[in-house]
Write a protein that binds this DNA or RNA. Structure first.
Lengths: 335, 335
DNA sequence: GTCAAGTTTGGGAGCGCTACCAGATTTCAG
DNA sequence: CTGAAATCTGGTAGCGCTCCCAAACTTGAC
């Protein structure tokens, strides 16, 4: 760390190569209109001096930042600790790696963070934004739609449909899960929902309702959770108390399902004999519960992939259409 | 998304407020030497125009980027999918959120990525860098030490001690684990190691050896894995074949332990009666295996925290001392 | 040999901001 | 009431790069 050592500038390169700064610039950006001789002279100078272009200056001159941000808006700093996001990030990175764009991570959890995100949206600080995990009434959602910068949503906030988004087919997945329970001969099927102020929460609930409606079954055995294991425990207790006759339960997250499984066991219910259980997300732990959990898997990395791809397309001036990614049923021993 | 709408500039704010650009700049950065009247006039103008300072221009003028990067150097794009990193990121973010610094994520996995990382290190593109998961012979490690930008390491690459780093006490944790096995009366204690070209891998192996040496026990029941579940499976098979008499095994990652547990079961060994098992990391799944896994837990978020803190300290001109974070034994039913 | 068309070249004006400086104004001790 | 110190104020010179433009030079068809 030797701060004094100043950066090598384009001017120095140009001088050493005996050309104008313009010419040097053209070589760096390999633009045309440079003779072979000068081009090589510049390249030699670059190598000799160890020149690396200053991204900031370039950004100022071109009016392009060279970076996009992934913003997670939430009131809980721990959401990002969810492996879900890590996978989304991997998906995003893998497509960004093919471009010159950097990925900036923004966790808008505190009010400070919210302010920053807001400023980001009204101020080309980044070339594009990917926004995830917005709660229902988050004013940022609306702001994002009329931002000065292209915005792609990951998932849909409840109560409004963004212009550009990538989402998993939560409703379809939930329907799949519920239909599977029905096909197994269950008739008194309960559900533990996720947060009803999140798109995924309401969509999964809706899928459950649809499947039961089609089959003409009762869809009133409902308790709301918040996706967390602890809430699953609580909800299962409540469900058992209110509907002791239930023979199956569709649970909107594997975390909650894990909590619920334990409650069921403690209550002396056999899974799947007495009560069948299906979760949602296919987290890695789902393979290791007792019994292993039947669940709905969604293509998380692909979600990240597609978000990045859509943003790129937007940056290229296109108007991509929203995307809903398929989910699928993963059969294990809990049903 | 209305690109035409150009950004509001400081000049426009100054003009509207009837002050010089200098004065306006002072207000924005709330520097002294501005009369109350002008200050308020500027603030009104800012609000009216919806002015947001252009970070790029500021960066160019101040020679400070306003961003630090977290770089993960690895040959495998999936490493980041490990929840471990997600937690580190949360730790980092939570301290960065108190500053004006952005967090840029760089996954130097392809050769493209490596090049970018290299350029980053020789070119103040960021105000600081946090580097993680370097393999032993990665030339980047050395480069980082003489970079033009402050660098903090997360973990220590094998075979060399960086100037500034934060690491978990892998050796101490491994010793703890092994001592626990010894205290339980086990005498034929095997180990499945992690990758030996990573610092964590060698350190954990060393801890195992130390504990056995102190107790005067044989430390030759060793098979090398690579931290993955699959490698745990393979290694456990090999261990059983080569040392059928083993009565305990210390496994350098929970993922491997999960694989191993299954093999043990299939081989008809009772855990912990016939063979005691202790893992490392305390991943969430460790609570849900059968039997639940005794393991070593490391303070991951705190690792991120401290890395960020150390970088901040470096940026402030201090010379912080390296930090080794304690690990602890988490007792469950596998021992 | 001539002229139009195409290529190469370097000068210079920005991009939006900060920071230094010198000049103007205010403050206040004696 | 005076002068030194402290406080405001706006002009200006960058930060390092891109990109437009006009000038200089090639090319090649006739």
């Amino acid at each position: 760390m030797k701060l004094p050592k100043r950066q090598v500038t384009l001017d120095e390169v140009a001088e050493r190569a005996g050309v104008s700064r313009s010419a040097a610039s053209r070589v760096i950006n390999n633009a045309p209109h440079v003779s072979k001789a000068k081009r090589e002279a510049v390249q030699r100078a670059v190598a000799a001096l160890g020149y690396v272009p200053n991204a900031t200056a370039r950004a100022l001159a071109t009016q392009q930042v060279g970076a996009v941000v992934l913003a997670i808006s939430s009131d809980n700093p721990q959401v990002f600790a969810d492996p879900f996001f890590a996978e989304v990030v991997v998906g995003i990175s893998s497509v960004l790696e093919e471009t010159e764009l950097e990925l900036i991570l923004m966790m808008a959890t505190s009010s400070r963070g919210q302010t920053r995100l807001e400023q980001l949206l009204r101020s080309r600080q980044a070339d594009g934004v990917m926004l995830m995990s917005m709660h229902g009434d988050d004013p940022l959602a609306r702001l994002a739609e009329q931002a000065d910068v292209p915005v792609v949503f990951g998932g849909r906030p409840v109560g409004f449909e963004p212009r550009y988004y990538v989402d998993a087919d939560n409703r379809g997945g939930a329907r799949l899960a519920t239909e599977h329970l029905i096909a197994g001969g269950r008739t008194r099927i309960a559900t533990i929902t996720g947060r009803m102020d999140e798109g995924a929460g309401t969509a999964r609930y809706k899928g459950y309702q649809e499947a039961l409606a089609v089959a003409g079954l009762d869809a009133s055995r409902v308790v709301h959770g918040d996706f967390s294991e602890e809430s699953g425990t609580r909800a299962m207790h409540e469900l058992l108390a209110r509907h002791p006759d239930l023979d199956a339960v569709f649970i909107a997250s594997d975390q909650m399902a894990i909590g619920a499984l334990r409650v069921l066991q403690d209550a002396g219910k056999q899974v799947p004999d007495d009560v069948a259980v299906v979760g949602f997300n296919d987290i890695t732990t789902a393979r290791h519960t007792t019994p292993p959990l039947t669940t709905i898997s969604q293509p998380i990395q692909s979600l990240g992939n597609q978000m990045a791809q859509m943003l790129l397309s937007l940056l290229a001036g296109n108007q991509p259409t929203p995307l809903i990614l398929p989910t699928r049923l993963v059969l294990r021993a809990s049903t």
